[in-house]
Nucleic acid binder design. Structure first.
Lengths: 346, 346
DNA sequence: GTGAAAGCGCTAACAT
DNA sequence: ATGTTAGCGCTTTCAC
């Protein structure tokens, strides 16, 4: 093996545009135009350049291009935590949609280092990144600061609703209405004492879903008394804990609307361990439609989030923001109530 | 709002190193050194530069830096498919470990466009990317080609084993031995007719796990006859289909070792629907230790993959390959058999 | 239709 | 200890 200095992992220096130019017997400028498919080039020259590039295994250097163009064709995706199965699914669709638009994605999860996402805002400003996709209600402080200072940056939020049109575009569903629909369905099944297993009390999604529950009960003249609101969280264990304690301090409810599918999994496991049957003794519904919800025993009634559509629409919106300076706006997508046996009158 | 041309989303051009130099009253080179913390700089100058950079909201332009350094501080992660919960978990740890080493990650899932991963190999060669992390046995054809041509590239594979030291480093477990351990455990529980629900017949992981099953049976003088091998796949539905048909053409086995947790979920659902109880009528074990496996009813006996360690070790290995031209090698990590009630003699 | 040349923002030799 | 300068690889006026 030929001797190489440390860190020099490339077998030979890879070809640059100048190399291709030399091979094809043209100038670098012509290569650039030919490869980009720009107008004033003979078909014959284009062929020759393409051929030379292919044979030499040429690929443009993204950094040189980005530096020149001041556009990187990279979208940053900020994800809180991949442990919630909503995110991987969303991310997969984001990746696909971005690639189809000619973008690559960088990802960073925000749950751990609070400093980290601010760094990316600086990079966005410095031109290293073209735009940022937020996939939760978290927003880097620095970004908030810039926006209130009047900056218009290419940022789109999805999955979690943006409370008001505040300078960040959004692609979301009507969380409150969806929750309302679930509770309404439980009422039509004849349930009267309908409890709510609440999510983290500060998360916007959790607040909206709780409000939907309250509203539906009120519209049906039912009570949402304090013993029916069960504070919990979005995790399986939050649900399980609730399932273990349910009915200890008050009568059992007829049905429980859980703020998400994961907490519903835990709740059902907890109830089952105590010998309570779903839906015979108690009906359960969730929210999110994770893929496991359909194979659960019993299958879980839930709300389908249009994750693919959310991913695609937010990528497209972000691209429009980047490339066309489109206005900031919020898109509301349709949700769907999936009625499965966990909530059906037995 | 001031008039701006289309695509100009930045409120004002963000500061460059030259701007900071002017503000701090030094040269650009000094700014570069001060910010990088390089030796020959007065503490006082460093302070002044840091201050100026902070006030101006300065961030280095990553493309300019990468172009100059021929090093991008970006690792590409090639993921087949985020739908298998192994990957999100792995990815999360990769992100964290990479960030701690000063790298960002770009991700691309490979399951759809076969052309795509080859493009990244070109980019790697062209210096746009520092290294690639493969998280399955898939390897871009172009990469294989380069390697057999003698190229040494910064590539690490994890999660799936690399069959032989062939120019790609790896971080993996001994899949065959782990499968052996599971089957061995089933034997100690008194089971004799132990079936195997096989994964995709061409995937290296599936092949290794099957071999472990065969070996364990052979070592115990048990039969691995053809009616005990059930060809399936890695998906829930593959397992469910098998569960629905099990015992139709032959006697029911005592136990089933599934090639992964997901197919075990489906299998258990299928068996349950037919009134067969796990583990009372039939014992079940899986492989992967997905987070749902512990909350299943009954909780699933499985093999824990050290995903966090895999993620960290592979990032570190990749960094060594990039920065120190380290030799290619394979690291084998310890696995762990998690015995839960799905496999215990009732 | 094609080439020459400038310059994107940064870092590292080399000078002072 | 700091400044000057060159150049990384690309795209794009501007000439021809």
């Amino acid at each position: 093996m030929p001797k190489r200095k440390a860190g020099d992992n490339k077998p030979t220096r890879s070809p640059t545009m100048a190399d291709i130019a030399r091979i094809a017997g043209v100038s670098a400028a012509t290569v650039s135009r030919a490869l980009a498919g720009l107008p004033p080039i003979t078909e014959e020259t284009r062929q020759r350049v393409a051929q030379a590039a292919k044979e030499a295994g040429y690929a443009v250097n993204r950094h040189a291009r980005s530096l020149r163009l001041k556009r990187s064709k990279v979208m940053l995706v900020l994800i809180p935590n991949l442990a919630n199965p909503n995110f991987p699914d969303l991310l997969m669709h984001i990746d696909r949609a971005a690639y189809d638009c000619g973008y690559d994605i960088m990802i960073a999860h925000t749950a751990i280092d609070p400093h980290r996402s601010d760094r990316y805002v600086d990079e966005l400003l410095a031109g290293g990144l073209d735009g940022v996709l937020l996939t939760a209600d978290y927003c880097p402080p620095k970004l908030l600061e810039r926006i209130s200072a009047g900056a218009r940056l290419p940022i789109v939020r999805t999955l979690s609703p943006t409370p008001a049109p505040n300078g960040i575009s959004g692609v979301q569903i009507d969380e409150e209405k969806a929750a309302y629909d679930v509770v309404n369905h439980l009422v039509t099944q004849g349930h009267r004492r309908i409890a709510h297993l609440g999510g983290p009390p500060k998360e916007i999604v959790a607040i909206a879903r709780k409000r939907g529950w309250e509203k539906a009960l009120a519209d049906h003249g039912l009570d949402a008394g304090p013993d029916l609101y069960i504070p919990a969280g979005f995790l399986i264990d939050d649900g399980r804990r609730a399932g273990n304690e349910l009915g200890e301090h008050a009568a059992l409810p007829d049905a429980i609307f859980c703020s998400n599918d994961e907490s519903a999994y835990g709740l059902m496991a907890g109830l089952k361990k105590r010998g309570l049957r779903v839906p015979h003794d108690i009906a359960v519904a969730g929210f999110d439609d994770l893929s496991f919800s359909a194979v659960l025993d019993p299958p879980l009634t839930t709300v389908r989030l249009p994750r693919q559509e959310m991913a695609e629409k937010s990528v497209w919106k972000l691209r429009a923001l980047i490339e066309e300076d489109a206005p900031n706006d919020i898109t509301i997508l349709k949700h769907e109530l999936l009625i499965r046996s966990s909530s059906l009158r037995s």
